[in-house]
C-alpha cells in the first residue's frame, strides 16, 4: 500500500473527535465526495473513535490512536485506517446490535457498516486492533454494490 496522505496520532480524548471529523470531512470533499458522503465518513469515524475510547481503552483519555488516510483515485474515494493498542477483541463480537432491540448503546458498529462501502476489523499482530474503512463516490459505490450482489447470486 502507498504512503498515506495523512498519518497522525491523537490522544483518546472525546474533545478531539470534532476536529478530527472536520478534517476528514474536508479531505473527503477534496477527494471528490459529496456532502452526504462526507457526512457519512465523519459519523463513521466518530463512531469508531467512540468505540476505541469507551470500549477499547475503557475511557482512559491518555492512550494513543493512529489515523491514516489515503485519497483514492480510481475509483474516487478515501480509505481510513485506525489503529489502537487496546486489548484484542474477538472479531465476531464486533457486530452491531439488532435494531429492533431498542436500548442505549450498541449502535456504533451498525452505523459504520451502514454508512461505509467497506469495513474491515482485524487484530494487529503487534497488539491492538485495526479498522480499515473505505468510502467511494456514489456512482462507484452503486456499481460496487451491484457487482457484489451479482457475484453473491451467481
Amino acid at each position: 500500500m502507498n504512503e498515506p496522505h495523512i498519518h497522525m496520532r491523537i490522544l483518546s480524548r472525546p474533545e478531539l473527535m470534532a476536529p478530527v471529523r472536520a478534517m476528514l470531512c474536508e479531505l473527503a470533499s477534496r477527494a471528490g465526495l459529496n456532502e452526504t458522503e462526507c457526512g457519512h465518513i465523519a459519523l463513521s469515524i466518530d463512531e469508531a473513535l467512540t468505540n476505541i475510547i469507551r470500549h477499547g481503552y475503557k475511557n482512559d483519555f491518555d492512550s494513543h490512536i493512529w489515523i491514516s488516510v489515503w485519497e483514492l483515485e480510481n475509483p474516487k474515494g478515501v480509505r481510513i485506517q485506525m489503529d489502537d493498542l487496546a486489548p484484542h477483541v474477538e472479531l465476531e463480537k464486533l457486530k452491531g446490535r439488532e435494531l429492533d432491540d431498542i436500548r442505549p448503546g450498541g449502535l456504533g458498529v451498525h452505523l459504520i457498516h451502514s454508512l461505509m462501502d467497506s469495513v474491515h476489523f482485524s487484530k494487529r499482530p503487534e497488539g491492538g486492533m485495526r479498522l480499515v474503512v473505505e468510502k467511494f463516490h456514489a456512482h462507484v459505490a452503486a456499481n460496487l454494490h451491484a457487482h457484489v450482489k451479482h457475484n453473491s447470486q451467481a
Binding site: A42, L43, E47, T50, I102, R103, P104, G105, L107
Partner: peptide
C-alpha cells in the same frame, strides 16, 4: 447540526 450514537443513546435513555 450533528449527532452520533452517544447522542442517540442519551435520547433513548430519556425515552425510557
Amino acid at each position: 447540526p450533528y449527532m452520533d450514537s452517544s447522542g442517540l443513546a442519551t435520547l433513548i435513555e430519556a425515552l425510557q
